[in-house]
Nucleic acid binder design. Structure first.
Lengths: 207, 207
DNA sequence: GTTGGAGTTGAACGAGCGTTCGAAGCCCCC
DNA sequence: GGGGGCTTCGAACGCTCGTTCAACTCCAAC
């Protein structure tokens, strides 16, 4: 291994920490585990990072920032609301699948942070959620009334997308393109495109 | 407090443990926290339970069993595939919302278990997933070709439903009936009922 | 009144945790 | 060849963790 700059070494530390956190979970992973995994001594880790919590924060915030920046790029100049949504979903899933460990940590260890760290990540969450809800509002304007509450729909879409950390295998037979297309279609048109007024969809008694 | 049977005390322990695990997370919650929360001494907890891990297992398996049993009850005798799906979703969300702490623990601490404990919970997961996929297969038979891969659709639906532990407030202005109706409609008909063949839904280049 | 088992406890154990720190290694520049 | 700032490290600190166990209380049965 040739010499690396300080930033490069921090990057490497973050990346192997993300892998460890994703595999064992944040709390079950010790700083000694991280040291071993990244080939530094235990004390050496603290030269790059002030605390274990900061390590988690850096993983979460850097990747969330990248997702948001990618989303803004992907939507820039696109005016058709449906295409905007499609790009939102594509960006999210592309980034998720190609940064599985980091995004698993971001999704699963959401409330392992405290104080200002937590606040800053939550700010990004609000920002990102707002962006999706704005896209949904545009879609409603052009494609008629929605079949569901906008906020419920937004969180449901995030649920579909983020839940993949529990089951999706990037090396399996479902490629990320198919995954993205499937989720996009599911969200926009449903599993079988059943009209909302369908009798069976009304709730209440069994009759 | 009147005298309680051993089973009732275990039940109470499990219930306050679920609350603590849901709030602080399994790993960050100590046996001393649980003792304090359930009004027993630290050693007293071990009279009812063999280990912290067994405590987590009992929370997960008992509630998962209840969800599965409720689902079988809800589907019994119902033949219309769409209504079967609706009841599957209703049962899942009703139970989830009325047992938020337990279900949050079940959803989030999925891989904190080891060995046989993990295996037994995973068996239930397979069983439950299989049941949903069978319902989806029935729907395809009666309502034409699906707009998405069946496995992806099943996991997406679980994602929508389980993700609620990150955002849903049972005391907020979205009641569980509305939530269930929304998710059911979203899954079956999509957000705005867009036909799958819609040009904007085809993927590929930006053009 | 004594016995015995169920329920409960305080105190302790060894282990592992996150973090710190003084000292050593390294390498470029004078 | 020697000074000086990055970088790395072994060793330790204080603390909390999950778990154990002998001893205690309580109360129904005899």
């Amino acid at each position: 291994m040739a010499n690396q700059t300080r930033d490069q070494k921090l990057e490497g530390l973050l990346s192997s920490a993300a892998r460890e956190f994703a595999q064992r979970g944040y709390d079950r992973t010790s700083m000694r585990d991280l040291a071993r995994a990244s080939g530094v001594s235990l004390a050496g880790v603290y030269y790059y990072v002030q605390s274990k919590e900061e390590l988690l924060f850096l993983i979460q915030s850097r990747n969330f920032e990248a997702v948001i920046a990618g989303m803004r790029d992907a939507l820039r100049g696109v005016t058709d609301p449906v295409e905007r949504l499609q790009r939102f979903i594509d960006n999210h899933l592309d980034y998720f699948v190609s940064h599985m460990a980091e995004m698993k940590v971001l999704s699963r260890e959401a409330d392992a942070l405290d104080g200002e760290f937590l606040q800053r990540v939550n700010d990004m969450k609000r920002q990102y959620t707002r962006a999706l809800m704005d896209v949904l509002a545009d879609i409603e304007k052009t494609h008629g009334p929605a079949h569901a509450n906008r906020r419920v729909a937004a969180y449901s879409l995030f649920g579909m997308m983020n839940w993949i950390y529990t089951w999706y295998d990037p090396l399996g037979d479902v490629g990320v393109e198919l995954l993205s297309q499937n989720i996009c279609r599911l969200f926009l048109g449903g599993y079988v495109g059943l009209p909302v007024s369908e009798t069976a969809l009304s709730r209440g008694g069994a009759g």
